[in-house]
Design a protein around this nucleic acid. Sequence first.
DNA 1: GTGCTCAATATTGTATACAATGAAGTCGAA
DNA 2: TTCGACTTCATTGTATACAATATTGAGCAC
Lengths: 256, 256
Amino acid sequence: MMFLRSPLSRKARIEITGGPGKNYSLDFMGTVDFKQWTSESVAADLERAIHEHRLPPATKLGEDELGDAYGISRTTVRAALHALSHRRLVELKRNRGAFVAQPSVREAREVFEARSLLEPRTARSAAERMTDADLASLRANIEDEHAALDAREDGRALFLSGQFHVEIARIADQTTIEAFVSELISRSSLIIALYWRRRAALCETQAHHALLDAFDQRDGDAAEQLMKSHLLDLVASLDLRNVAQPATSLREALQK
Amino acid sequence: MMFLRSPLSRKARIEITGGPGKNYSLDFMGTVDFKQWTSESVAADLERAIHEHRLPPATKLGEDELGDAYGISRTTVRAALHALSHRRLVELKRNRGAFVAQPSVREAREVFEARSLLEPRTARSAAERMTDADLASLRANIEDEHAALDAREDGRALFLSGQFHVEIARIADQTTIEAFVSELISRSSLIIALYWRRRAALCETQAHHALLDAFDQRDGDAAEQLMKSHLLDLVASLDLRNVAQPATSLREALQK
DNA sequence: GTGCTCAATATTGTATACAATGAAGTCGAA
DNA sequence: TTCGACTTCATTGTATACAATATTGAGCAC
C-alpha cells in the first residue's frame, strides 16, 4: 500500500514564508497538486497488493483501518472493497467484514478451466494481429520480470508474469475478454499463494519466451498450442488434492 | 421494479384501531414482516428490469429517484448501481449519474466473441454431466418461454431465453464460467435491444429445442456444435453495420 | 441574433453519525 | 471446572448532511 500523495486532481493552496532558523528557510507560494484517492484507485492499489502477495489470503481488511491508512473515509473504502468482491478477490461477510479471498480447490480448478477456454484462442488472435510495438511491449514485460526476480522481488515478478497474459488479450483487441482474463489472473495469484507446490521455481518465463517466439513469427497455431500447454503446466504445478482446508473458523466450515 | 414489500427480515410494529366509517374498519395489533431491500436485491431487481427491456438503454437511473421508489436511501442504491456497472449493464458518468448501458457495435461483437469461446465447450461439458433433473429443468424453461410468448410478454420471454444459457453453465458445474456467461447474457439483452434486426421473431426456441435433443442423448459433440451455430445465428440476426449511433449527446460522441 | 460570462440549480461524491449485528468476555450456578 | 446466559465491545450497515461538480438559463456585449 502506498500512502504517498501524487498528482491527480486536488489542489491545495500553500503559503510558507520564512523559516525557523539559519539552517533552513524557504519562501513559497503556489498550488500543489496531491493525489486524491478514489474508490477505483484504492481498489487498484489493493488489487495489486493482493496480486503481489503483500496481502495474503484471509487477511482482514477492516474499513476503519484502511480508511486511516489511505486518509479517506469508510465510504470510499467500502466502495473499493465491494468492487474487489465483484472480482472475487475479496470475500465480504455480512456484519463481519472483508477478507482477502481464499479460493477453494474447486474454485481453483474452475478458474483454470475458464482460462483454458479463453486464453489459447485469444493468443491465436493476438498472434494474428501482432505489431512490432506489441512484440516490444511483451519483450519488455519479460525483461522486467527477470529484473524483478534478480532483485528478489518475487511478488512483483508474479504480478508482471500475470500482466503478460493480460497484455496478450489487449493485443488481441478484445477488451471484454481482457477484463475476464484480468480477473482470472488476479484470482490465479491467490490460488498460487495457497496451492503452489514448489515455492522457489517461478521459472515459467520459459513458456513466455516460447510464446514470444510464436508471436514473433505470427504463428497463431503455435501460440494457441503453447498457451494451452502453458496453462496445463501451471495447473500441474499446483497441489490441488482435496486436503482439508485450514478452516479459519469452525463457523464457516459448517455454514457451507 | 417492484415496490411491494415482502417478507425478509425487518419487522414493523403496527397498531391500527378503528376505521373511517361503516364500510370498513379494522382492529389490528402485531408485527408485520416486510422486505428490506439490500444492495444485492436491488441490483438483481434492476438487472432483471434491464434484461427484460423494461429499462431500455440510456435510461437515466437517478439515485434519489430510485431511493424513493424502493423506499431506501441513496447509499444502498449507489451500491447496487456500482455492482451493475461492474457487470457493464450500467454506465457511471462521474458527477453525472448512472445510465443503462448502450453497448457499442464493437462491444457487441466482443460479447459474442467471448460467448463463442465459453459456451460451446461448456455445452459439451453439460451434455456429459446431464441428469434427468437437469433435462427437466431445461424443458421447463423452454415451456415457460413459450407461455411468455403466447402471453405477449416479450421481455419475460427474452429473459427466460437467456436463463437457458445460464442454466447450461450451471449444469456443467462451472460456477466461475456461469458468472461470466450470466454477465454476457445480460449484456446480450442490451445488444438485442439496440441492434435486433427483425423485431417480431423471437423464434430462436428452435435452436434451444435442438440443444435439448442433444442433451437428451448426452451427445457432447452435437451440443457443442449446436451451441456454436446458435451463437453465430444470433450474431447474424443483429445489424452490426457501423452506422452512426443515435448519439444521446454530442458531448459524449466527442469525448470518445 | 449570436456568443460569451456568470449565477442558479440539480445531482453526484464524500464524510460522519447512528443503528444493528456478531464476537468475546464475565459472572454465576451446577 | 464447565456450561449457559448476559453484558460489553468492536465492527459493519444504513441514513443523512454537506461539499464538489456539471448543466442550465439569464443577462449582457457586440
